[in-house]
Amino acid sequence: MFLIEWGLWKTCTESEAARKAADTVMAPTDKSVAIDLYESELREDVHFRPVSNTPRSRGPIFAFNETYMDMRCGGSEEKRGLITLMTLGGLGPMTYAWFRVTFFSIYINATQADFLSVFSVSFSLYMLSIGGAVYYFYAKYGFRFTRLEILTSRHLLVRFNRKTQQVHLHRPTSCGGIATFPWRTTGSTGLYPEDDSLSVGMRLGLIWHPSHTGLPHMEMALIGKQGQGGSELRDEWEFIRRYMEEGPHAVPRPRLSTQLPSPIQAFSAQFEGLGRFFRNSSWLFKLVMLMVWPAFVIIGTAHWISLLLCWRPRWPKVIREAGLPGKPVPSPTTLSDYPPEIQERLLANADRWQLKPGKRPEKKPRKPRTPRARKIST
């Protein structure tokens, strides 16, 4: 499921009318939080110092060699299958019933002259128009959501190329398309130990801010599986950092995953990040998990069908050959790489990512509340 990436790209390319409509329903505090980022904080969040002594990747990793490493990225992978289930579960029975009724009536009109009448012809035309209208509105408004799981790239990919010191993102056009960034512009969310309690169920996030890339919008990639704590995210980032800075010999060789539509990946994705939580949970919670196992089977099956109905992503030739002797180095993504209409929208929303100068002011300590004087009854 590419819902998070699609939502971020929609935010970056939002029209003026849509943005005004969203701002009218947004609370003032939410507006301040959306742009509340200071220059000093960004400098602290982009560094390449060691953050862990145990570099480790939990995958999935699809390629690993001296030149590049391919990893799966994308948020909400554990929820993949829900859109497939709603699409096929809704359109499938409706399409079957519509085809059966409509074409049966047309067949009767064409083969049985006694049945032919103004009413029968009108009914056939009515059924055709009903089905046509439903699929028209689905194609116009619903297919954009279906494409988040069906008839699109099987996975979002991120490629780390050591030889060119670049990071490449492989995404559908609706989620921002293929992009290239210098490695040294990459920020990470897996840096600080104090985030450990807030990182359960989260993925490692890589961020490219406009102040580093020169683009008018922010880019983001959510790496690998859900973590069970900040320590796992720091281990994942340290694995990537050492690979890019020192080479594949500096990290444990990972187990490679297949890019084929594996049912193991489909069913195991639902349990990412639950291991530590499940071990420490009560027996009642474990009993409830056992009782709802049919739901996991249904979602896992829909996840697998989603993978079957997608195609394997393929990198452009210039990225596939990057790092080989005599081959050109891919150019970093610039604003001119996007269509003119997208360029205008990206520039119109550029103020979303502007940094506040200096350092965040310290919060003033709250004054202790004085207890009310008790009335002493005489």
Rank of each mutant, 00 (worst) to 15 (best):
A18P: 02
I4P: 03
L82F: 13
F137G: 05
I35T: 15
P368W: 03
M289G: 06
S105C: 07
S117M: 06
Y192K: 13
L287D: 11
T185E: 14
S117A: 03
E245G: 03
S331Q: 15
K327W: 02
Q259R: 07
A97P: 00
L125D: 12
L151Q: 10
L82G: 14
P263T: 14
L233D: 07
M244H: 03
H155E: 14
T84R: 01
L355I: 03
G187A: 12
L346K: 09
A17L: 11
S281G: 05
L324A: 13
F137E: 15
G142V: 07
V121T: 07
P261I: 09
R312P: 04
A63N: 07
T95W: 04
H249T: 12
G358M: 00
Y126C: 11
V134N: 10
P365Y: 07
V51E: 10
G230M: 02
L8A: 11
S211H: 07
E39T: 13
S282F: 02
W353T: 13
T54Q: 14
A17S: 14
D70P: 01
S40K: 07
S377K: 06
T213K: 02
P216I: 06
I305Y: 10
L128G: 09
P60Y: 08
P371N: 13
V200E: 08
A27N: 10
Y136M: 15
N65H: 07
S199P: 00
E321T: 04
M26A: 15
I178S: 11
F278Q: 09
V329H: 03
Q354D: 14
W304S: 12
G205F: 03
G224E: 04
F99T: 14
P210H: 01
L347D: 08
A133P: 01
D45N: 09
Y135K: 06
K356G: 01
S117L: 01
S262T: 10
Q165L: 03
G247C: 13
C175Y: 01
T180L: 00
Y136Q: 10
L233Y: 04
E149A: 02
P248W: 11
M127C: 10
R154F: 05
F239E: 03
K225S: 10
G131P: 00
R56L: 12
N109W: 03
W293M: 14
F145H: 08
E149C: 02
I376H: 10
F123Q: 09
